[in-house]
Simulated scan of single mutants.
Amino acid sequence: MSVVETKIEDGIGWITLNRPKKLNALAAEVVAGARQAVADMEKNDDVKVIVLRGAEGNFSVGYDIAQEVEMGLARPEDWHAALSNNVGLSMAVFSCTKPTIGAVDGWCLAGACELAMACDMIIATDRAKFGEPEIRFGSGPVTLLMPFILGQKKTMELLLTGDTVDAATALEIGLVNRVVAPEDLEATVNTLAQKIALTPLVILRLTKTALVRAYEAMGLRTAVHANLDIAATLNAAEAPEKAQFQELVRTKGLREALNFRDERYGKLTV
Rank of each mutant, 00 (worst) to 15 (best):
residue 181 A to P: 00
residue 219 G to Y: 06
residue 39 A to I: 03
residue 175 L to M: 14
residue 234 L to Q: 13
residue 90 S to N: 15
residue 60 S to H: 12
residue 228 L to A: 04
residue 184 D to R: 09
residue 64 D to P: 02
residue 47 V to Q: 05
residue 8 I to H: 02
residue 52 L to I: 02
residue 94 F to H: 11
residue 95 S to I: 03
residue 174 G to K: 08
residue 133 P to Q: 05
residue 187 A to I: 13
residue 45 D to R: 14
residue 11 G to C: 09
residue 159 L to D: 14
residue 101 I to S: 01
residue 31 V to E: 03
residue 94 F to I: 03
residue 50 I to H: 03
residue 153 K to M: 01
residue 181 A to W: 00
residue 184 D to P: 00
residue 260 F to W: 09
residue 4 V to G: 01
residue 215 Y to W: 07
residue 104 V to P: 08
residue 211 L to Y: 04
residue 170 A to C: 15
residue 151 G to H: 10
residue 183 E to N: 05
residue 169 T to K: 15
residue 2 S to A: 12
residue 165 V to D: 11
residue 71 M to V: 04
residue 141 P to A: 14
residue 237 A to C: 08
residue 156 M to D: 14
residue 215 Y to P: 00
residue 150 L to H: 04
residue 10 D to C: 00
residue 20 P to T: 08
residue 44 N to P: 07
residue 158 L to D: 09
residue 231 A to Q: 14
residue 200 P to L: 04
residue 233 T to I: 08
residue 101 I to L: 06
residue 41 M to I: 03
residue 112 A to C: 06
residue 48 K to A: 12
residue 253 G to H: 11
residue 160 L to I: 02
residue 152 Q to H: 11
residue 250 R to N: 11
residue 2 S to H: 01
residue 241 E to I: 03
residue 185 L to W: 06
residue 47 V to T: 09
residue 161 T to H: 12
residue 13 G to E: 02
residue 229 D to Y: 08
residue 111 G to S: 15
residue 185 L to K: 05
residue 217 A to W: 03
residue 163 D to E: 15
residue 80 H to V: 01
residue 114 E to R: 05
residue 110 A to V: 07
residue 103 A to S: 15
residue 92 A to R: 10
residue 238 E to Q: 15
residue 231 A to S: 15
residue 60 S to Q: 12
residue 134 E to P: 00
residue 227 N to P: 04
residue 77 E to A: 10
residue 42 E to F: 10
residue 129 K to N: 09
residue 86 N to S: 12
